[in-house]
Amino acid sequence: MEKLKDALDFSDFSKAERIGLVIFSVFLFAFPWIGAGSFTTTVMIQFLLFSLFGMGWNTIGGYGGQVELGKAQYVGIGSYTVALMMVWWKVPFWVSMPIGILIAVGYSFIIGYPLFRLKGHYFAIATICTSLVLKDIFDNWNLVGAAKGIELPIHDHPDFLYMQFKSDTYYYYFIMALFYIALFYMNWFRKSKLGYQLRMIKDDEDAAESLGIDIRWCKIKAYSIASAFVAVGGGFMAVYNLYIDPASTMELSLSIKIALMAMLGGAASLWGPIIGAAFLVPLDRFLGSWLGGQKGLTGIDFMIYAALIMIVSAYQPRGIWGIIEQFRKRGH
C-alpha cells in the first residue's frame, strides 16, 4: 500500500515538473483524438516503446551507473517468446508475455552473475558480447526461423487475447498503459532501498560496501529489473509488428539506442529517458523519411544522428536534463 502511495507521489518534484507531467499526460490521452495521421501515430508508439526501454535501462545504467550495452538481447527474448509461443502453440499474448518476462529475468540472473564481476570497459564490452552471441545463435537456428525471422499468424478479426487490432490506436493505448506502469514503477524505484543503494554504488563502491550493501547482488537485481522492462517492450514489438527477426530485435545498434536515449535525456533522472526518446525517436524517424528516401542521400540521416551523439557526448555528457538543471540552479 505504501509502495503504491510512493509510486503515485510526485510531490518532491518542482511545480513546473508536475505541471509539465499533467500537460504531457493530457496530450498523450488526447493524441489519437486530435486527428493524428498514421505516420505520427507510429512515431508516438515508437516513442512510448523507447521510453519504456530507456526507463528500464535507467535502473542499472542510470541509477547504478553501469555502462550496460546489451539490452537488445532482452528485446529478443521478449519478442521471440511471444512470437514462438503464438506460432507453435497458439498461446495468447497475455500468457506468453509474462512467460517472456520470467525467461528474461531468469536469463539475466544467469548472465548477470558472471557479468557483474566485471567493471568499466571490460563490463561494457562483455555486455555487447553476450548480446551478440544470442543474436548469432538466433541468426543460425532454423527452428526459430534463423535470419529470416518469423511471421505471426494474422487473425481475420480483431482479437484481444492475441493483441490483434485493425487500428493502431488500440496499440497506442496499450503501450501508453505500459508506459504509465513503467513510469509509476520508476517513481517508486528511485525512492526505494534498492534505488538509494544503487546511487551509492555509482558514487563510491568502497563506501557502499562499508555500509552493508552487497554490491554485486544489488547490480544483478537492478539488471534483471531492467531486463524485465525491456522484455515487455519486446513482447509488444512482436504483436505490433507481426514480424520479428534477429536483426530488428537483437542488433547491437538497438542496445546502443536504448542506452543512448536515457543518456541523452539525462541518466538517473525520472524524466531523462522520456525526454531522450521524445527527442531521438522523432528525429530518427523524420530524418529517415525525409532524407533517407531521397536518391543519392542514403546515410545522411544517420550521419546527422551520429554527429548529434558525438556533440552531446563531448559537450553535454549529462544530457538534456543536465542542461535544464544547470539553468535552474543558475536561477536560484
Binding site: V67, M263, M303, Y305, A307, I309
Partner: peptide, 14 residues
C-alpha cells in the same frame, strides 16, 4: 567514461 564510450560509438556510426 560512459560519455566517452558513446562518443566513440557516435564516431563509428558517423
Amino acid at each position: 567514461a560512459i560519455a566517452q564510450l558513446f562518443g566513440t560509438f557516435g564516431l563509428m556510426l558517423f
